[in-house]
Amino acid sequence: MRSRTGLTVRTFAPDQAAARPPVLLVHGFGSHGNRDWVETGIARALAAAGRVVIVPDLRGHGDSPAPLAADEVAAPAHVTDLVAVLDEAGADTFDVVGYSLGARLAWELPKTAPGRLRRAVLGGLSPVEPFEAVDVAALHRAVAGGAEPADPFTAAIAGMVRAHGARAAGLALCVEGLRSTPFTPRTWAGRTPPVFVVGKDDAMTRGIEQVVDLLDGAELVTVPGDHLEVLAGAAFRRTVLEVLAG
């Protein structure tokens, strides 16, 4: 369904509700809610455990509308969208599971929705902002059919973005917006420290221990797989269910 924000939101209701708040699932960059949470079985596993599950597509992703400007998809704008989705669902309190970009946005939720977040699982989180190294002007030129970026990293991002066809221009704006509001982890504003989950072979999460060490009581769980494999793995799904059952 479409929320008042314009985002596409899928909601999964349990047959018998548990005495726990709804769970917000936030997907990664270039993905969408169906791919990260429905196809992997995580959304339905949570619903089977008695949880209402809220699965939005971020702006510029999946079936949600494309942005017209980078400030619509900077990190604060994404987080504002997520809080609006929670408000529309009547979720006075909630749990959150975010993966990759979704984890980076979930980090901001306790500050934007103070006192409402119960538990958080942050999967595949990079300790630095990967898009800070992107040459945004070169990226936009390449996505529009211009010259290939000279910088290898920007060229790789351009190739990944172009693979999304009609969604490419919007995703390039997402890169620009996120680059303008880089991830700078400091204090965690939630009541309960998050649980971090990373893949044993995930190069994108190297150095995550520095973020975990910032937070008293935070836990780091390592599961099999690289950045793309973790979500579909039984170990990640089991960790999510165990953490949110507490």
Results as ranks from 00 to 15, higher is better:
D213M: 13
D151V: 00
V243M: 13
I42P: 01
A166Q: 13
M204N: 10
P114D: 12
T184Q: 15
F94H: 09
L139W: 11
Q210P: 00
A74R: 14
V55T: 02
R141V: 01
R119N: 05
P224L: 10
P182G: 05
G177H: 09
L117W: 12
A155S: 09
S100Y: 00
R186E: 14
V79C: 07
V38A: 00
A156Q: 14
V197W: 01
L25R: 11
V143Y: 05
R119T: 05
G30I: 03
R51S: 11
A133H: 07
E72L: 07
A166N: 05
R20D: 05
R186H: 13
V161P: 04
A70Q: 12
H140K: 13
A163E: 06
E132K: 10
T205I: 02
H164R: 13
R119L: 10
L68C: 07
T11N: 02
A120Q: 01
F94I: 04
R186D: 15
A142D: 08
P110T: 06
R206W: 06
A218H: 12
G124Y: 04
P14A: 07
L68G: 15
L244I: 09
R20C: 07
A84P: 06
G170Q: 14
A245N: 15
T187V: 15
D63Y: 13
G33N: 01
A13D: 13
R179I: 01
V211S: 11
G159R: 15
L214V: 04
H78S: 02
H164A: 10
P127W: 08
V175P: 11
V243L: 02
A138W: 14
R59C: 10
S31M: 08
L215H: 14
L125R: 13
G33H: 01
G62Q: 11
D216M: 10
L24Y: 14
M160D: 04
A70T: 08
D135I: 09
D226A: 10
G217I: 07
L178R: 03
G90K: 07
H164V: 04
A169M: 06
A235M: 06
R35E: 02
G165N: 10
L46N: 12
A47Y: 02
A203D: 11
E129T: 00
V96L: 07
A203T: 06
V96Q: 04
G146P: 13
T8R: 15
L215C: 09
D63F: 12
A133Y: 12
D71W: 14
T184G: 07
V240G: 04
R116M: 04
L25F: 04
R119D: 11
V85R: 00
G246Y: 09
G60H: 13
G217W: 11
L220C: 11
D213P: 05
G246I: 00
G225E: 01
A218T: 09
P76E: 03
R35N: 06
P194M: 12
A48W: 05
